[in-house]
C-alpha cells in the first residue's frame, strides 16, 4: 500500500507538487510581505494596519548563503537512521526582498552551491510517519 503524502506543516505551502509556493501574507496598507503568515498587526512600525491578504510567495530566488548539517539535529527533527547529512540554503526572494531558509534537495551538497545562484522551491520528504509521507519545502538549483 502506498503512503499518503501530507504537508509536514499544514498551511505553510501549497501542495502543488509541480509548482509549489510558500504561503505568506501581504499587508493591505503598506505592502510588506510576511512569512510565516502574519494576520494580526503589521510589523512595519510606520504602518498601523491589521488587514492582510494571503499571497503565494515567489518560488524562485538567489542564494544568499548556504551550509549543511553534518550532525543529527535534536528533536523535534526526525532523522533517518543512519542520519544522512543535508545542505541548507538561505534564498533571497527578489520581489519580496526577504530571505527564506530551507533544506536543499537530497543529493545536492555544499560543493554544488554558490552565493548568487538561482534556486527554485520544491516539495520533498521531511520524514515518514506511519502510513504518511510528510513533505516540506526545499530549495533546488535551477
Amino acid at each position: 500500500m502506498s503512503k499518503t503524502t501530507v504537508p509536514a506543516i499544514a498551511g505553510w505551502y501549497t501542495m502543488d507538487a509541480g509548482n509549489p509556493h510558500l504561503i505568506g501574507t501581504r499587508c493591505k496598507e503598506c505592502g510588506s510581505y510576511f512569512f510565516p503568515k502574519l494576520t494580526t498587526y503589521c510589523r512595519n512600525p510606520a504602518c498601523d494596519s491589521d488587514e492582510f491578504e494571503e499571497v503565494q510567495l515567489s518560488n524562485r530566488g538567489h542564494v544568499w548563503s548556504y551550509t549543511n548539517a553534518s550532525y543529527k539535529p535534536p528533536e523535534p527533527f526526525i532523522a533517518a537512521d543512519p542520519f544522512v547529512p543535508y545542505a541548507i540554503a538561505a534564498v533571497r526572494l527578489d520581489h519580496e526582498k526577504m530571505i527564506v531558509l530551507g533544506q536543499v534537495v537530497e543529493g545536492i551538497g555544499v560543493e554544488n552551491l554558490k552565493v548568487g545562484q538561482e534556486m527554485r522551491l520544491v516539495l520533498e520528504t521531511l520524514h515518514e510517519d506511519g502510513d504518511q509521507t510528510k513533505v516540506i519545502w526545499k530549495w533546488k538549483p535551477v
Binding site: 509536514a8 548563503s65 548556504y66 548539517a69 527533527f77 541548507i88 538561505a90 531558509l101 521531511l126 516540506i136
Partner: peptide, 18 residues
C-alpha cells in the same frame, strides 16, 4: 526551524560562508 533541521550553528555557518 528545529523540526526542519535548522540549528543554531546553521546561522554561524551561513555568515561564515558569505
Amino acid at each position: 526551524r528545529f523540526y526542519i533541521g535548522i540549528t543554531n550553528p546553521t546561522y554561524f555557518a551561513l555568515y561564515a560562508r558569505r
